[in-house]
Design a protein around this nucleic acid. Sequence first.
DNA 1: CATGAATACATAAGTTACTTAGGTATATTT
DNA 2: AAATATACCTAAGTAACTTATGTATTCATG
Lengths: 116, 116
Amino acid sequence: MPPSQQLFKGSLTTIVLKLLSGGGKMYGYEITKKVKELTNGQLVLTEGALYPALHKLEAEGLVVTTIEQVGNRPRKYYALTKSGKKEAVIKLKEISQFISEMQQLLGLKIPTLTIS
Amino acid sequence: MPPSQQLFKGSLTTIVLKLLSGGGKMYGYEITKKVKELTNGQLVLTEGALYPALHKLEAEGLVVTTIEQVGNRPRKYYALTKSGKKEAVIKLKEISQFISEMQQLLGLKIPTLTIS
DNA sequence: CATGAATACATAAGTTACTTAGGTATATTT
DNA sequence: AAATATACCTAAGTAACTTATGTATTCATG
């Protein structure tokens, strides 16, 4: 496991919700490819992690699935439900704030200019 | 559990190493207070998570401890070893890069200007 | 045309980093 | 005197992963 993968914990669901909040439906394998592409191969979302996560999102009612046959092979598309869209917004806000806190804590952020 | 705590996974060790890389020694309880202070109470590092993490860092040789008696109560100070200092730099680089990737992936970041 | 790589789904066992829930004792505040 | 803060600790449970494996179809390559 590359070390950066360790930091992934907790953010996989948010990534999926974000990608689906583009409006279009996506299928699992496509999501793994998209993440790899968007991060220039630096973040790899394994299928063993993704599929259970997608199933959990479905069980929670945040996504719905539709199966399409492509050639002879089934493709399972995922799309956000109404509550999935809401959750996507919430999760994005949360991770955004968390990142901000981490940057502050770790001194990775230029402090805001304040007049005192 | 506040939801933002969920995103903590994997970054606790990095936070500890960063705080200790200021040069001075710190004790466990002090670290929890410092994190709370630096994030305005938004990130709470529980003792149940911290102490085992500190013990692990010690077992790995990244920190050494010295015990001081304050009044009648023992205080266990942690300080980075040489390899601890190296690891701190590595971990900080990793998390910094990870944050960057996440921002890119989640569209939280203004893309770098490129001439094409 | 066969062999391997890519596409596309899935699950199951194991690991790890946490959370939750305690426990002990001293020091300070009200 | 009682409550809160300081200061350490551990143990059981959980959730989110990793690793490994399985199945089947489609595409590319020599």
